[in-house]
Each structure stands twice: as C-alpha cells, then as structure tokens.
Simulated scan of single mutants.
Amino acid sequence: MKKSLFSKVLFVCLIIPSVLTQAAEVNVYSYRQPFLVEPLFNVFTEKTGVKVNVVFAKKGMAERLAREGQHSPADILLTTDISRLVELHDKDLLQAVDSETLEKAVPEKFQSKDNTWYGLTMRVRNIYSSKRLGQVDLSYEDLADPKYKGRVCTRSGKHPYNVALVSSMIAAHGEEKTLTWLENLKKNLARKPQGSDRGQVQAIHQNLCDLSLGNSYYFGNMLNDEKQKVWADAVNINFPNQANRGAHVNISGVAMAKHAPNAKNALALMEFLVSEQAQQMYAETNMEYPVREGVAVSALVSSWGQFKADELSLETIAQHRKAAIKLLDKAQFDL
C-alpha cells in the first residue's frame, strides 16, 4: 500500500512540473518580421506570464508542419496574406477555434467559415501613380487600357499579393474577362515583372513607368525611410475602384496549428492579438489597417483618406486562387 501510494505521489510530482512548464509558454511559427510582432508578444507575456517562443521564416511553414506532424511544437501560425492561410487550411494543418472574442472582433469577411483562421490586419492593393500624371481616379481594370502601353510596372504576377488580386478579378468578372485583362495588362508593362512592391515605386521615381501595384503599408514604410522617401515622394497613392466594387483588401492572419501542444495559451494569444491594445500596436508599427472596428489607424495612414473596400469575403476570393495561377500561366504574364 505504501509503495503504491509512494508511486502515485511520485507520478504526480513528476507530472506537475511538466504541466506547469507547458502552461507557461506558447510556440509561434511566424512569417511576420520580428520588429512587427515581438513588441506584441512582450506585452502579452507581461499581462499573462506566458512566454512566447517564436520561429521566424520567409517560407516553408506548411512543409515544416507537415514534416513534424503530430509532434510539431507549433501552437500559433502567423501569416502575411490570405494565400498562405488557405495553403495551411487546404493541407489540413489547422484546427478550428471556438472563441466568441475572435468571432466578435474580426469581421465575417476576414475569417473562415470553419473558424480555422482569422484576419489580424488589413492592407489595400493600391495603384501608385507618378505625380507627373497629377490626380487620377483609377481602377484595376484601367491598368489594361491601351493608353498606358509601356507605362505600368509590377512585381511577379505569381507573387501571393498579385495572385489574390487576380483571384478577386475572377470573382468580379469571371475567368474569360480576367484572362483578357491579364493579356492587355502585360502589353502595357514597361518591363518584365520583377522586384518588390517598393521596387515598382522606385521605378516610377526613375521615370521607367508611371503606374504600379503595391500594398498600402509599403508607402508608409517608404515615407519613414531616409533612403526611400524620395521614391515615395514621387508618387500618389490611389485607392482603386472607388466608383464601383471597392479596392481589393488582403490581410495578415493567425491560426492555431492542428497539433498545438499548448492550445489554451494559444487561444489566449489569439484573443489578445485582436484586442484594442494589440490591434493599435500592430497596425501602427507596419502602417496597416486594424481589422477590429473602432481602432484608429496611424496618423500617417489616416492622412491618405478613407476608402471603399471590396465587400467580397476573402474566403470566396481565395476559392479562385488555383484558377488565377492558371490564367497567369496562360497569359505568360511573367515571361
């Protein structure tokens, strides 16, 4: 009896430290850069006592999770756009999260119907125009207008930001018209698709083109960069399609890993990231728009004015992702 009791006590003594260790941490795989998320994690730890361990990467998250399987230490996954969230979802690497806090804080169009992922911040796929053109009112469709032949710059059509935009065009116009748009847009390119969103603004500054596509937050970041400010000063930031369906909006997002070992702490971190405090910090740091209504944008972002956003849900847009890639190939857009 004594031996049995001792064994039970020893078992409990061994288990409790393990449980306490698990209860004091949460593991994050992040596509978002350290300067964006570490301040948030520091505040979360101060509030809860839960340590946040982070693995930063630019690619390969889905492959790593699949390789690690049920032994993966990942609890939370942070991504930079809808395409990567959908990739994780389609590969069955996420789990549904039951949270009234998340449901209320994140607009329906920025969350999945099965509760596997949620948006955290928004960014607009803007059209940048040279100040040589003066004030212009543009739509994405206008980029294919023959009058802009040889005057448009863009990064690769296969980049996730552009794939999402093409997906939204398919949702709005169908595949046939979107293919025609891509073919005509390609005719208007000043050079082969290349570089980053910032690189396109630099090209406008260098008089290589007059129009380019780029996410809204890059404009703010360039204005705050001593070297790149001269590029940003050469362009106007335009919110497309304000006369009809509205500008295409993408998100950074969060999801819980399928085999999260610290699910309770993971949920607490997810809910913290949609709190008013975190939303303000997150949006301010990278010049993005909070998904939570009522949270103010930064003064600089506010100076660009208000805009009308496409009301179509990102989940609906993402359904056209594979078709978008096929159309880009068919148009030989990057060649």
Results as ranks from 00 to 15, higher is better:
Thr154Gly: 14
Asn162Ile: 04
Glu175Trp: 01
Met122Leu: 15
Arg132Tyr: 12
Glu175Pro: 06
Asn162Ser: 12
His159Met: 12
Val166Thr: 08
Leu143Glu: 05
Asn126Ser: 15
Val136Tyr: 07
Lys158Cys: 04
Ser156Leu: 05
Tyr140Asp: 02
Ala144Asn: 07
Pro160His: 07
Val136Met: 13
Arg132Pro: 12
Val136Lys: 13
Ser139Arg: 03
Arg123Cys: 12
His173Leu: 09
Ser139Gly: 14
Glu175Asp: 13
Lys131Leu: 14
His159Ala: 15
Gly174Thr: 04
Tyr161Arg: 10
Ser167Phe: 03
Lys131Ala: 14
Arg151Val: 00
Val152Tyr: 04
Asp145Thr: 01
Ala144Glu: 09
His173Glu: 06
Thr154His: 13
Asp137Tyr: 10
Val152Ala: 06
Arg123Asn: 15
Gly174Ala: 12
Lys158Trp: 00
Asn162Cys: 11
Leu143Arg: 06
Tyr140Ser: 09
Gly174Arg: 02
His159Glu: 15
Asn162Met: 10
Gly134Trp: 02
Val124Gln: 10
Asp137Pro: 06
Ala144Phe: 08
Tyr161Ser: 12
Glu141Leu: 10
Gly174Glu: 05
Arg132Trp: 09
His159Lys: 08
Val124Leu: 11
Arg125Gly: 08
Pro146Arg: 04
Gly150Tyr: 01
Val166Arg: 05
Val166Trp: 00
Ala164Thr: 01
Pro146Ile: 00
Leu133Phe: 03
Asn126Pro: 07
Ser130Gly: 09
Ala172Val: 01
Val152Leu: 08
Ser156Tyr: 01
Tyr148Arg: 08
Arg132Phe: 11
Lys177Gln: 15
Met169Gln: 15
Glu175Arg: 06
Arg123Pro: 09
Ser167Arg: 07
Pro160Gln: 11
Arg155Trp: 08
Thr121Ala: 15
Ala144Trp: 04
Glu175His: 07
Arg125Ala: 13
Ile170Ser: 14
Pro160Cys: 11
Ile127Met: 02
Ala144Met: 09
Arg123Met: 14
Val124Met: 13
Lys131Phe: 11
Lys149Arg: 08
Gly134His: 07
Lys158Tyr: 01
Ala171Ser: 15
Val166Gly: 10
Ala172Lys: 10
Gly150Ile: 07
Gly157Phe: 00
Ser130Leu: 03
Asn162Ala: 09
Lys149Phe: 01
Ala164His: 07
Gly150Pro: 10
Ala172Pro: 05
Glu175Gly: 11
Glu176Ser: 13
Ser156Pro: 02
Tyr161Gln: 07
Ile127Gln: 02
Lys177Ser: 15
Leu165Arg: 06
Val163Tyr: 00
Cys153Asn: 07
Pro146Tyr: 01
Ile170Thr: 10
Val163Ala: 06
Ser130Val: 00
Thr154Gln: 14
Gly134Lys: 04
